[in-house]
């Protein structure tokens, strides 16, 4: 059984079909990347998968369950997690509190009204583990908004991993990072292990070809091409639409 199955998914904003008749499947443990030019509907697809947007038609099936109209948080409890393209942290809280809030989102303790947050030993252990694995433990006392951008992206990743997801949706994880930082993120994603299935949007081809096993090219809300990294690299249409070829360069001149 496929982990995630998308069937004929469409969403229209007025007359504009932002995503049109999209169908694809992700198997357990797979690394799938979605690429495509601006406005191709990549992030819209993410928002449909995570529930921020509701589709006009089509369905999303996760772990055999119909989740087309499930709420964002219900999907997280089922084992889906996402990162955001524009860094999305708790800017006024410390790194440590960011981790604590992130971790308890899928735990029953999140509704406890009289137990102080800072007396939950199990949660504190988990927070330490999470922050140490992302090399943020030494910065735990810093206010999140005062972190350097690269560190904020790391915290973003940490928050996305906090709910121990089976399917991780990464929206441009290396966006705005330096080459070194980007290589670091690439290595981290590659090292996630087969328990976590990864679907990511990326513009960074080093990241795509370094991590993904399969690539989907989106264009005008539809799948224009699909295949392994090698297939995509040698696909003429992909070159035309996305990477630019000698021919298109020639035309430009």
């Amino acid at each position: 059984m496929a982990l995630l199955e998308v069937r004929n998914l469409s969403v229209h904003f007025g007359g504009l079909a932002a995503v049109h008749d999209l169908s694809f499947v992700i198997e357990q443990g797979e690394r799938l990347a979605i690429i495509g030019p601006n406005g191709a509907g990549k992030t819209t697809t993410f928002n449909l998968l995570t529930g921020q947007l509701k589709p006009s038609s089509g369905e999303v099936v996760f772990k055999g369950e119909q989740i087309t109209h499930a709420s964002v948080f219900a999907r997280t409890h089922l084992g889906m997690a996402r990162s955001f393209q524009i860094t999305s942290l708790f800017p006024h809280q410390t790194v440590y509190v960011n981790a604590l809030i992130g971790l308890q989102g899928t735990q029953r303790s999140r509704y406890r009204m009289f137990r102080p947050l800072f007396k939950d030993k199990a949660l504190e252990m988990a927070a330490q583990e999470l922050l140490e694995s992302t090399e943020l433990w030494d910065l735990r006392g810093e206010i999140a908004s005062s972190l350097a951008y690269g560190q904020q992206r790391k915290l973003e990743m940490a928050l996305s991993l906090a709910s121990k997801p089976d399917l991780l949706l990464l929206d441009e994880p290396s966006c705005g990072l330096t080459t070194t930082e980007s290589a670091d993120i690439t290595a981290r994603i590659a090292a996630l292990g087969s328990m976590i299935t990864v679907l990511m949007i990326a513009h960074d081809m080093d990241l795509v070809f370094g991590v993904a096993e399969r690539v989907i090219l989106m264009h005008y809300g539809e799948i224009a091409a699909e295949g392994t990294c090698d297939e995509i690299r040698s696909n003429q249409m992909v070159r035309d639409i996305y990477m630019g070829s000698r021919k298109t360069l020639g035309h430009a001149r």
Binding site: F73, H77, F84, I101
Partner: peptide, 16 residues
């Protein structure tokens, strides 16, 4: 406090 700071993220983390 998390909702005050970033409600979308809270939802993505599993909070109703």
């Amino acid at each position: 406090r998390g909702i005050h700071d970033n409600e979308r993220r809270m939802q993505a983390l599993g909070y109703n």
